[in-house]
Write a protein that binds this DNA or RNA. Structure first.
Lengths: 163, 163
DNA sequence: ATAGTAACTATGATAATCATAGTGACAAGA
DNA sequence: TCTTGTCACTATGATTATCATAGTTACTAT
């Protein structure tokens, strides 16, 4: 490809975020980080992306202020990756993607008789379905508020991926 | 690149939609379609994408059932593109992207003293800010419910692009 | 000394992207 | 009729991002 057109200076808000989010690898890595997975190798394994891509994208996310690289061990020196507040706020985008998929991206019966991932509000225990506001307690849902329970099919896939 | 890894058969809902949405061109084209722009040349001009890319992505969106190709003139035969219900439901994703950008993607004062685009609920006239539910009437906000008013800076850019 | 772990970097083949130009089918004006 | 114009594309060639695979560095554990 030629150098791809840069849209980071557009005044359109969708255009600006598209520069960051319009990339499969970025979305998958953000999914992992939002799920609380922080380690390089875990992210690479779960996303199926090569280490080079993961490395490049994490560097970019750190440069954009979306993620942060932190040492979690001195000897040997090891680092992992955490979302910043700016990064945590991307929850809404990924959650909207998830909701859309649950509605449109599966053949009937493909996920059994429930969603691919069932989300429960941590503080009140309500199954939120695809709501943006907890139907149990009315709270706005954000990063870390939900506990996901993968369907059997998804669980099997995740096990296979890390094996 | 080698054939990029296919994630369309993953059971993870974010992974599935990432296959579609993890692409700058797709996001920009969806933005145009959600804004009600239907014509090929208009989409190409507003996104800054080459006609080949626009053509390829529109074909893909039609194949995915997200958009529809319709004739709008017989002589000469001309077609344009409309979102299907599946496509209109992507509003939530793009709206979340817009909200994130309004919060994080601009330097202080870069858009003047308001957002890059001000959205007003069509039916009740309330400025919705970045809310997911209309603060005026409590209705859920979906595709077509909002009327966008671009900031002067964004307007100028749009004019420049089509000139 | 050997094997293992974690976070990467290096290499080469492949394919997606961009810029630019061109095509086909028609309409409108001189 | 001839030229110009419009719209929705397709064709070509240079550039570069991506993938698969293998290798590296710096340590720990046995």
């Amino acid at each position: 490809m030629p150098k791809r057109a840069d849209l980071s200076d557009t005044f359109c808000p969708v255009g600006r975020s598209a520069e960051l989010l319009g990339d499969r690898a970025v979305l998958l890595i953000l999914r992992e980080l939002l799920f609380g997975r922080r380690r390089f190798e875990v992210i690479a394994a779960n996303t199926g992306l090569g280490p080079q891509l993961v490395s490049a994208r994490l560097k970019m996310l750190v440069a954009e202020g979306v993620a942060e690289r932190r040492p979690y061990s001195d000897r040997p020196l090891r680092h992992d990756y955490w979302l910043t507040d700016k990064g945590k706020d991307l929850f809404d985008v990924l959650y909207a993607m998830r909701n859309w998929s649950e509605r449109w991206a599966y053949a009937p019966g493909e996920t059994g008789d429930g969603p691919a991932i069932r989300y429960v509000h941590r503080t009140c225990g309500t199954d939120v379905g695809t709501a943006k506001i907890c139907p149990g307690c009315g709270a706005e849902l954000g990063c870390g508020d939900l506990k996901g329970e993968a369907s059997p099919a998804l669980k099997a896939e995740q096990v296979a991926r890390t094996a």
